[in-house]
Design a protein around this nucleic acid. Structure first.
Length: 463
DNA sequence: CTAGGGTTAG
């Protein structure tokens, strides 16, 4: 294709679709004609191109850039966007835990000449569910009539909110109201209620609801519902019942999926029945159910508990081969066990290799590393990691820091102690316990001047 | 992706 040829509307959209890198996609969108000598013509944007670039930027959390394009879209009068685009945007802000921005987008939808329905309203409800702001959910629900009639999805979101916050009885009230308003509960409704009952150890009621949903409502349980029940049974140590449910699924021709296998394997593993776990793992493969990242993580955990790191690494490779990406949990499981075994050097290597393997360490990774290095008396390395994690905005557990500071005091490692407090100060994470330690430390210190310095800097932090 | 399950850590 001739690169100098001015780009067409259609080609811009397909190039945008193919461009995986959001930054490059944005560059392409802003400057679609690659040849600078081509005289500037009106750029052929289509609604599809806007959709593509906005969702790419939103997915990448590049919100400033996304808003820029949105402002441009608002001026386009050749076409009107679909409500679904705004549902996406609201969802992106929710995932980034920016509920205020989501609310703002929701408010601005009419200025794009787009009518808001219950769909974008539900997206907004979901944002506050993701942010666990249940009061705000309730508040939103009160003003619902402006946008339409609450549908099954609306009620399911509310029920979910109550279930995850342990307020099962409130969830049941919403369920009753839903029925009263003539909205039929669906399999997701029952899934949420059963999930909540299992979470709150009300297993008898969960099983009763599983029966009633069929008898009374003619809605049939699916794998989601079985997964909640099986998990709870495993945690109660009732593995035989859990396997009876698995048999029931097969009998009722409900397709077994990876979640069911993950739950069963993990359940067996937790009570030390490793051989049976391995049998289920083989059974899964034979039955043609593909393991996903979670299933692999369960298996990696199993091998790690067995101190079989070779097998764990093999599974990591197998995941990559099968196109199933190891995630941060895959690595955290291995890291934790490497430290438990005192292999802190190997753990450090794996940790440093994570970004190269396309997985950024999270707060758990850093905590594992920090605690592991402290336990292994690798204080210098621990101080480095502490500074790095604080720089990235991850907070170590308070107990870990106290223990660390304690060890440094005992070892009279003043230089390191000083740098640790400096790091903590940068992250503004000095709490009362650390204060007490610092003051005690300052009072015991022979070098009066440096103690004063320390206390002064701590006072700065508070002010 | 307007809504749901299962894995690590604490």
């Amino acid at each position: 294709m001739n690169p100098a040829r001015p780009i067409t509307t259609f080609r811009l959209a397909s190039l945008l679709r193919l461009q995986k890198d959001p930054k490059l996609a944005l560059k392409l969108f802003k400057n679609p004609n690659p040849n600078p000598k081509t005289p500037l013509k009106p750029i052929p944007y289509s609604l599809l191109s806007y959709d593509l670039i906005i969702t790419k930027l939103g997915r990448a959390k590049m919100f400033k850039e996304m808003q820029e394009i949105l402002a441009q879209l608002k001026e386009e009068i050749r076409f009107t966007s679909k409500e679904a685009l705004f549902c996406d945007i609201i969802n992106f802000y929710g995932r980034a835990h920016l509920p205020e921005n989501a609310l703002k987008v929701f408010d601005e939808v009419p200025s794009f000449r787009v009518q808001r329905t219950i769909k974008s309203y539900n997206s907004l409800l979901n944002v506050f569910l993701m942010c666990k702001d249940f009061d705000k959910m309730r508040e939103l629900f009160v003003g619902i009539e402006k946008f339409g009639k609450a549908d099954a999805c609306t009620y399911n979101l509310l029920i979910r909110g109550f279930c995850t916050s342990g307020r099962i009885d409130d969830a049941c009230k919403v369920f009753d109201e839903m029925k009263k308003r003539g909205v039929s509960p669906n399999v997701i409704t029952f899934g949420n209620l059963i999930y909540g009952l299992c979470l709150n150890l009300r297993l008898t009621e969960a099983f009763k609801l599983k029966t009633d949903m069929v008898k009374v409502y003619r809605v049939y349980p699916n794998a989601y519902i079985y997964a909640s029940l099986i998990k709870r049974l495993c945690e109660n140590g009732e593995l035989n019942l859990a396997f009876r449910l698995k048999e029931e699924m097969i009998r009722n021709k409900i397709e077994m999926d990876s979640a069911i296998y993950s739950t069963l394997i993990s359940g067996l593993c937790k009570v030390g029945r490793k051989e049976e776990a391995l049998i289920v793992w083989e059974d899964m493969k034979v039955s043609g159910c593909k393991p996903d990242t979670v299933t692999y993580n369960v298996m990696i955990n199993l091998f790690c508990k067995d101190k079989d790191f070779e097998a764990a690494y093999r599974l990591l490779d197998e995941m990559v081969e099968k196109g199933c990406k190891p995630d941060v949990i895959s690595y955290n499981v291995i890291l934790r066990e490497l430290f438990n075994e005192g292999k802190w050097g190997e753990a450090n290597d794996l940790f440093e290799d994570m970004p190269r393997r396309g997985c950024s360490p999270d707060v758990v990774s850093y905590r594992i590393l920090f605690d592991g290095l402290c336990n292994g008396m690798q204080f210098k390395e621990a101080a480095l990691i502490l500074d790095e994690m604080i720089f990235k905005g991850f907070a170590p557990r308070s107990a870990s820091i106290c223990k660390f500071v304690d060890s440094l005091c005992e070892g009279k490692n003043e230089d390191l102690l000083w740098s640790v407090f400096n790091s903590l100060e940068k992250g503004k994470i000095i709490d009362v316990d650390l204060w007490r330690m610092a003051v005690a430390l300052a009072l015991k210190d022979d070098k009066i001047s440096s103690s004063f310095e320390l206390v002064d800097s701590l006072i700065d932090v508070v002010n």
